[in-house]
Amino acid sequence: MSENGICKITVKTRYFGKLRELLGTRTETHIVEKGATVADLLLDHIPNKHLSVSKIWKETLFRTLKGEHLQEKNGTPVLKNYLVIINGKSAKLKDCLKEGDEITIMPPFGGG
């Protein structure tokens, strides 16, 4: 897909537990720039689609210190103990998204 000369791709996100409750949806689609990463999705696209809870979303997923996001040496934000799965396989924040990817964001487990 192309919009203003920028190549776009469509990905699907799935939420469970407290994230499903926070966003009020189980699944949704996002149109992102080709080359966008998991970090871009979690820090920009998802919170921008849910502006009323964007602050809570970021504080829920990422480690902060005095209101600022902690970052790795390479500038990548630090995810709390949440898991990101792309098409059934474990993913990292720096991983690039591809057309049709299904990204599942999972809070810490609580079964039993």
């Binding site: 469970f16 537990g17 407290k18 409750e21 103990n81 999972m106 809070p107 810490p108 487990f109 609580g110 079964g111 039993g112």
Partner: peptide, 20 residues
């Protein structure tokens, strides 16, 4: 290890339990 989540609803509050 299994992706199952639990919300506890008490008389005063409700919260998602994390087995950590």
């Amino acid at each position: 290890e299994v992706p199952i989540w639990k919300k506890e609803i008490t008389e005063k509050d409700s919260y998602w339990v994390e087995n950590v």
